[in-house]
Every structure is written in structure tokens, then in C-alpha cells.
């Protein structure tokens, strides 16, 4: 064994270099850019201008509301889905095979499946055919604010569902069988099982899933960009998408950096809300 006290430091040096170069410096640069407009190396202090623009920018506030609403739909659909699938898979023999199928979309590029979803959710598409057969009406997914936000939530979930189901199934494995046996002996049904056993005993994992979903939503850009282009009536412009629009489409780097900083602050707030008692964030088993 190496007894040199600096040896462990040497081992983590690659990580530190990577962290400083590709994490810390970009954050610092974003922070600087948000207060200074470089404009081809001519530096102008624009901190208050950016703050003022942000306060008066309707699209920015709209993007926050859009992101929040998409997150709410996303989290509801996600939990319904993972509870349903995880309990369904309990009795399935070829569980691993089913999980593999569920996990496959995670490996497909976001751009590719956003295009697929475009055709699936079109007014004449498969989803609407099914809805019409079952309920007798069609939904204008691309033409209504509510429809397009739900569509984005579903598309996002489709890409990550396998990952979350996997996390949740692993958490369920740690619940002692005796708890469920007691519930069955007392005549408990599936809802009781969820309510009194599964949810309370997997709460830390569920909280982690919520936190990871917040991170996903904050970074949500590819799907609205490819599926709806922010339409209809800017109702699917998310926070990150708006940063892209400002930076790349409009060339307002400084303002975009300020928006990026706001996103980072929102992320930090969620992190601290999530982690009030110093518990470790990734308790996934």
C-alpha cells in the first residue's frame, strides 16, 4: 500500500481537473457573461439591464409556467405508470425481458423519438384513432396548450420510464415480504398495498425520483424543440428552450446567461428543499 498522504489526491486529480474545466469554469463564465456583455471583446456591464429585461419579459415568465405545468403532468403520469408497471411485473415470469423492453427507449436518441411522437400524436394518428374508438372524440394535441403539454410529458416519460421503473422495482425488493403478508391476511387490496406498504417504505426513493424529474424538466429542450417548436402560442417553450432561443436564435448571450443562472438557482433551491436533513441524495438500492 502507498503510504504517501498525497497519493489519494493524485488519484482524484483527473476528476478535479475535469470538474474545474468542464463544470466550474463554465458556471463561472456563465455568471460573468450574465453581468457583462462582451460584444466582440468590448465589455459592458449589463447586470441590471438583464434583470430588468427578465422581469418585463413575458416569454420568460411563460416559460417558467410552461415548465412547471409540464412537470406536474409529467410527475403524475410517471408515478401512475411506475406504480402500475412495478406491481404488474411482480407476477410476470420474464421480468427481465419486460424490463429490457421498457429500458430500450432510454437508449434511443431524443431527436429520433420526438419525430416518432409527432406522427403518433398527430390529429389523424394512432393515439387519436384509439381515443376516437374508445371515447368518440379526437384531441388536437398540437393545437391546444393543455394537449401539447401533456404530449411533451408523455414523450419525456417514454424516454426515461424504463430507468425509473428499474429504480422503483429495486426499491420494492427491499421491502420485507412479511409486511405484505400481514396486509393480505388483513384483507388489504392493491391500493392498500401501495398506500400502507410500498409508498411509505420507498419514500426516500420516490423523493429521489421527484428530484431527478425536476432536473429533467429544468433541462428539457430537445423534445419541445423537435415536437412542437414551442407552439401553440408559446405554451411549450420551456426554460432551457428559452435560453437556447435567446442565445442561439437571437444572439443575446448575456441575457441567456442570466436566464441560465436563474435555472441554476432554481435547481439549487430544489436540491436544498429535497435534502433538508443532510441525508444522502442517491439512496437508490
Amino acid at each position: 500500500m502507498h503510504k504517501n498522504k498525497y497519493f489519494p489526491l493524485l488519484l482524484i486529480t483527473p476528476f478535479i481537473i475535469f470538474f474545474v474545466l468542464f463544470r466550474l469554469l463554465p458556471i463561472l463564465f456563465t455568471a460573468i457573461t450574465s453581468v457583462v456583455d462582451f460584444n466582440n471583446a468590448d465589455m459592458n456591464l449589463v447586470f441590471f439591464d438583464n434583470i430588468k429585461s427578465m422581469i418585463n419579459d413575458n416569454v420568460f415568465w411563460k416559460s417558467i409556467i410552461n415548465t412547471l405545468l409540464i412537470f406536474i403532468f409529467y410527475i403524475i403520469i410517471k408515478f401512475l405508470f411506475i406504480f402500475f408497471i412495478a406491481n404488474l411485473l411482480e407476477d410476470v415470469r420474464r421480468k427481465r425481458l419486460v424490463l429490457l423492453f421498457l429500458y430500450l427507449p432510454t437508449l434511443v436518441g431524443l431527436f429520433a423519438y420526438a419525430i416518432i411522437f409527432k406522427y403518433v400524436f398527430t390529429y389523424q394518428g394512432v393515439i387519436n384513432n384509439f381515443i376516437e374508438m374508445t371515447f368518440g372524440f379526437r384531441i388536437d394535441w398540437f393545437g391546444s396548450s393543455l394537449g401539447s403539454r401533456i404530449m411533451i410529458s408523455i414523450a419525456t416519460l417514454w424516454g426515461s420510464a424504463g430507468f425509473y421503473v428499474l429504480i422503483y422495482i429495486n426499491a420494492l425488493k427491499n421491502i420485507p415480504k412479511s409486511y405484505e403478508e400481514v396486509l393480505i391476511l388483513n384483507g388489504g387490496n392493491t391500493i392498500d398495498r401501495l398506500r400502507f406498504v410500498q409508498i411509505p417504505l420507498t419514500l426516500p426513493v420516490l423523493k429521489t425520483i421527484v428530484f431527478l424529474s425536476v432536473v429533467e424538466m429544468i433541462a428539457l429542450i430537445e423534445i419541445p424543440m423537435n415536437l412542437t417548436l414551442g407552439n401553440p402560442n408559446q405554451s411549450t417553450i420551456t426554460l432551457s428552450y428559452y435560453v437556447y432561443i435567446q442565445a442561439i436564435q437571437y444572439g443575446n448571450f448575456s441575457y441567456a446567461a442570466m436566464l441560465g443562472l436563474v435555472i441554476m438557482i432554481i435547481g439549487f433551491i430544489f436540491y436544498f428543499v429535497r435534502k433538508p436533513k443532510g441525508e444522502f441524495i442517491y439512496e437508490v438500492n
Binding site: 457573461t33 462582451f38 466582440n40 471583446a41 442565445a247 442561439i248 436564435q249 448571450f253
Partner: peptide
């Protein structure tokens, strides 16, 4: 576009 904007911003 992104490369142009980034190069411009960083001169």
C-alpha cells in the same frame, strides 16, 4: 449557428 454565436461572443 451555435459555433458562430459562441466564436463571436468569445471573439
Amino acid at each position: 449557428d451555435t459555433k458562430f454565436m459562441a466564436a463571436k461572443e468569445l471573439n
